[in-house]
Simulated assay, not measured.
Amino acid sequence: MAEADLDNIIDYIAQDNPTRTEEFGQELRDKILPLTQNPKMGRTGRPGSSAFVRELVAHRNYIVFYRVLDEACTVEILRVKHAAQQSS
């Protein structure tokens, strides 16, 4: 779902600024990449969200929802949402 979210964000930005889309998509990915080395850098999720969900503000308008799978040494990106959207 996170990949679809990112595709939708890129498509939305392309409507107003097609030359910025690739660069913006890469900026979001670059903000997310450090989670591989520091998976707890985001904060715990919002009240009412699942206890395992964490969030990282990747851009002033976009939040990445993810979970850390300690036993698998993996970070799973769940969603990428506009800050005004709900996490589900």
Rank of each mutant, 00 (worst) to 15 (best):
Q85Y: 11
L33P: 04
S87I: 13
I9R: 12
I77R: 07
H82Q: 01
A2C: 13
Q37C: 08
A83W: 01
P34H: 12
A58K: 08
D70E: 15
R60E: 15
L78A: 02
R79I: 15
M1D: 15
D70L: 15
R20V: 13
V64P: 02
D70M: 15
S50Q: 05
T44A: 12
I32Y: 12
Q86L: 06
G42E: 03
V68L: 14
N38M: 10
L28F: 06
A72G: 07
T44D: 01
H59M: 04
P47S: 04
E71C: 03
L6W: 05
M1K: 06
Q86I: 08
Y62R: 09
R79S: 14
V53Q: 07
Y12C: 10
Y12P: 09
V80F: 10
Q37G: 09
A4P: 12
D16E: 14
V80W: 01
T44K: 01
L56M: 00
L33G: 11
Q26F: 01
T36F: 11
G25D: 10
S50K: 09
L28N: 00
H82C: 07
Y62G: 07
N8F: 04
Q85L: 08
L6I: 11
T21V: 05
P18F: 06
E22Q: 09
E27S: 01
L33M: 14
A58V: 14
E3R: 12
K40N: 05
A14I: 10
V53N: 04
N61W: 05
F52Y: 13
A83K: 00
